[in-house]
Structure formats: C-alpha cells, structure tokens
C-alpha cells in the first residue's frame, strides 16, 4: 500500500453555479460519500485546503485577469467571460483554495510525506487561459502546479498527462514554448468536442516544439483507440522525455455514460489509463504523481471511476 494523499475540503462545495449546471457541488459529494462507504477514505491521508498565495497564481495568469475575476465574484455577476462559467460570490475564494490545496499536496509529495495523491477539487482548471476563463475553469490548477514545481522545488522536467475528454487548451498554451514541461493530451476529436483545439499537428512552438503531443479520438472509438494511442504516443514520448514528476489532469467525462462526450471509454478503459500512467510513474518519477480532478459529470459513474483510480494509486 502507498501513502496516498486525498485533497478534499468542504469549502469546495461552496462554488455554486446556476441550478442544473453540470459542474455542481454534487460531483464532489458523490465522490466523498462513495469513498467513505467503501472504506477507501480510511486508507488515504486527508489533506485540507488552504488559500493559495497570489504570486503562484501570477506564475500563470495575468494580474489584471485575477483582479477581474475577483471583482466579478464580489459584484455578484452570474458568470465570468462566458455563460458556461457560472459563478457565485464565493467562487474566487474557492478557486484560490483549489490551487492552494494542490500546492500543499505537492509540498507533501516533494518532502516525502506522501507517495502520490488525488486532488478532489472544484472548480476544474485545464481550460483556463492566461487571461480568459473557459469551460467551467478559472485558475489553471495543473499549470500553476507545474510552475510551482519548477520555481519552488526546482524540478527540471515535468510531464503533464491530460485524459479529460476535452483538450486542455489552457495548459497546452501555457507550456507550448517550454521544453521542460511535456504536455500530453488524449481527448475527443476537436471537430466534435469542446474547445476545438488539440489536433495532432499541434506539437509545440519555438523551443517547445516536440514537447506537446495530442491524440484526438473520433467519436465512438472507445477503449481500443485509447489503448492504441496511449501505447503508440504517450508511452514512447514519456520514456524518451523522462519526466521527474508527473501531473495528471484526471477528467472522467470520456466515460460511455457521460453525456458530455461521445468517445465511449468504458470503466475498464479508465483502469487501463491509470495502470499505464502508474507504469510511467514507476519508471521515471520514483512514484511521484499528483492527480487533479477536472471533468466527469455523470454522478452515478464519476464516484466509481474515481474510486477505481484511487485504489490503483494507493495500491489497495
């Protein structure tokens, strides 16, 4: 069994989009109660959130954007930058708590108190751009985590894997010119799915060419295509890049029962993804992996997928 951290905080439920919005507090509630009932929670090391220092947010986002977001929440606006990004007065603080919790988890993994961790956070982050909120995301949690690993802990090469069914445009754009952060994403083909980026010819810019890799999957292709892409694209790329730390944008919305997408990945398909990522982690990072929740909107299936994912991380 591994020392696996579980980042969760009741305050993550306070970000309240409009009634009926898929990115609802019920997502985290369903995950938490499933882990509690199944007994998995007892085997994890619980980490609580803290407010992130703004200077870490500024490592990715423009200060004007951060202030604009805070103001939109304080003023009680219904949404921010696009109607998808439904907000309430607490959203700004909860987004800071999501980032702050993740940074605390990274400290625990880097100082050796944890082997790996799953971060059950809201709001998600991988669509958030330097100065624009997109696709339910405000602060790019995983991009900030990677900058923190570079600047605070001096980690040389960071691998980001993103298996959310939507392409992580914000994360890709943050690191497309940076050869020290490898961004790999597998997602539904951008002609069919949000946000319309992540085509196979997007491979980085300038010095970063060759350190961005995208595997778009056509609708309905399911497990076989995912398995082929992971083995053909991700595994050789990371074996050659040799990341010292792996961050995972864990979105569970590629599942066949999730109405947000059409790629038809099964529960076993998700198990395969986690297993292959753990093999990479064992080979290259000495076990260091921080998995961060992104999407996943079917409330009956999301908790099952998360539990399976965490069981594998914790080796239980």
């Amino acid at each position: 069994m591994k020392r696996t951290g579980f980042l969760f905080d009741e305050r993550y439920l306070l970000h309240l989009p409009f009634e009926g919005h898929p990115e609802s507090p019920a997502r985290l509630q369903s995950i938490h109660s499933r882990l509690a009932v199944s007994g998995v929670l007892d085997k994890l090391i619980l980490i609580n959130a803290e407010i992130a220092n703004q200077r870490w947010i500024e490592a990715v986002h423009k200060i004007q954007y951060i202030l604009r977001f805070e103001e939109a929440c304080i003023m009680g606006f219904p949404d921010f930058d696009h109607q998808d990004n439904s907000i309430c007065r607490d959203t700004y603080e909860i987004a800071l708590l999501a980032v702050g919790g993740i940074l605390r988890v990274i400290d625990e993994v880097m100082n050796g108190s944890l082997d790996n961790a799953f971060c059950a956070v809201r709001p998600p982050g991988h669509h958030a751009e330097v100065d624009t909120a997109m696709g339910f995301c405000y602060f790019n949690n995983i991009a900030i985590a990677a900058k923190y690993l570079q600047k605070k802990w001096g980690v040389g090469r960071i691998g980001i894997i993103d298996f959310d069914v939507h392409h992580g445009n914000g994360t890709q754009h943050t690191f497309e010119g940076d050869p020290t952060v490898f961004y790999y994403s597998i997602h539904e083909h951008p002609s069919f799915a949000y946000p319309g980026t992540g085509r196979e010819f997007e491979t980085g810019k300038g010095e970063g060419v060759g350190f961005t890799l995208n595997s778009p999957v056509l609708p309905g292709r399911g497990d076989d295509e995912y398995k082929a892409m992971i083995l053909k694209h991700l595994v050789p790329a990371f074996d050659s890049f040799k990341p010292e730390f792996i961050l995972l944008s864990a979105g569970f919305d590629a599942h066949e029962s999730d109405l947000m997408s059409g790629v038809n990945l099964t529960t076993q398909g998700y198990d395969f993804l986690t297993d292959e990522i753990l093999k990479l982690v064992d080979r290259h990072t000495g076990g260091r992996l921080v998995s961060i929740l992104e999407g996943g909107y079917n409330l009956d299936v999301l908790p099952i997928l998360v539990e399976n994912h965490i069981r594998r991380l914790a080796d239980i």
């Binding site: 669509h127 947000m260 059409g262 909107y297």
Partner: peptide, 20 residues
C-alpha cells in the same frame, strides 16, 4: 462546453443523437 442539459432535452423530446 455545457451540452449535457441540451442533449438530455433533445433525447426527451424524441430526437435521436447520431453517432458521427
């Protein structure tokens, strides 16, 4: 990005969502 509710409603009204 928020197509879940609209898909639900289309299905409820009897429309078929085709596999591209």
């Amino acid at each position: 990005n928020n197509v879940m509710n609209v898909k639900k409603k289309l299905l409820e009204k009897g429309y078929e969502l085709i596999d591209p």
